[in-house]
């Protein structure tokens, strides 16, 4: 195998993926805002870094994360122990979410909103404990989502019933939740799933669906991420109502 050539090819394809951003930024900077580029050299080095990073990441996905997710799914299916599989699913969701930087940022902002809205006392201690409670709530809801998603794959339930039920849950909660929390709750659905969680969880789902007879990896294997971005909305609104 010709490794350097392979890497060059993957760098080229990363460059192609970045081209739209570069074009958009250049166009707006030069033609709409009509300003020169600040630190052009730095920008170019940064773009090269992004290209290298993207190529390494994709290579690592195929060598590391995908095989790990799939081989664990096969191992659990062979072992046939439902308890361990479900515990693993829950911990994977909980453990990857609790440390997610985007979630930490959102939780902090949510605490500010809550303090200004008079829901909690306006001091650092109350805000810190509010933010921590929110993070645990979201992490718990993601763990629960992956767990439910795995049960769904095992049972072969159609995904859209569960998603539609989730939507109904979101709408009902919206009617009762404090107005200030709604935007944060809706956004928290999108930020919970990190770049490392997504490939692992996807590989787990596809691996499970392909190792259980009667399941189609395409129809049953996907959907875990969808649950993980739906349940935090419901739980964050609940958190806003009860705290």
């Amino acid at each position: 195998m010709n490794a350097p050539l392979e890497f060059l090819k993957s760098l080229f394809s990363s460059g192609r993926d970045l081209l739209p951003i570069i074009l958009v930024v250049t166009f707006f900077q030069l033609f709409i805002l009509q300003q020169p580029f600040p630190n052009l050299g730095k920008v170019v080095v940064g773009i090269v870094f992004v290209m290298i990073g993207m190529s390494l990441f994709i290579r690592g996905l195929e060598m590391g994360l995908f095989p790990v997710g799939e081989s664990m799914a096969y191992a659990f299916a062979r072992k046939g122990s439902l308890f361990w599989l479900l515990l693993f699913a829950f911990l994977l969701g909980f453990g990857t979410t609790i440390a997610e930087p985007a979630l930490i940022a959102v939780a902090k902002e949510a605490a500010v909103v809550a303090a200004e809205g008079g829901m909690i006392e306006n001091n650092a201690e109350a805000m810190r404990s509010y933010a921590r409670g929110l993070r645990i709530t979201v992490a718990f809801s993601v763990g629960l989502a992956i767990l439910i998603g795995v049960i769904r794959i095992l049972k072969g339930w159609p995904i859209h019933y569960l998603i539609a039920a989730g939507y109904v849950g979101v709408i009902v909660m919206t009617a009762f939740a404090p107005k200030e929390i709604i935007g944060i709750a809706y956004d928290s659905g999108g930020v919970t799933t990190s770049t490392i969680t997504v490939p692992l969880v996807t590989a787990l789902g596809v691996g499970l669906a392909s190792s259980i007879s009667g399941r189609n990896p395409m129809i049953d294997g996907f959907g875990l991420i969808a649950f993980a971005s739906l349940t935090p909305m419901i739980f964050v609104m609940a958190y806003g109502m009860f705290i």
């Binding site: 580029f37 920008v43 773009i47 090269v48 994709i58 290579r59 690592g60 590391g64 490392i196």
Partner: peptide
């Protein structure tokens, strides 16, 4: 191979984030 792949993922993501922080995010 899995270990090497994981290392690639971590180093790759770091390069990716540094590049974004240095070049694209401030501008954007």
């Amino acid at each position: 191979k899995v270990l090497i792949g994981m290392a690639y993922v971590i180093v790759g993501l770091s390069f990716f984030l540094v590049g974004l922080e240095e070049a694209l995010f401030p501008l954007g």
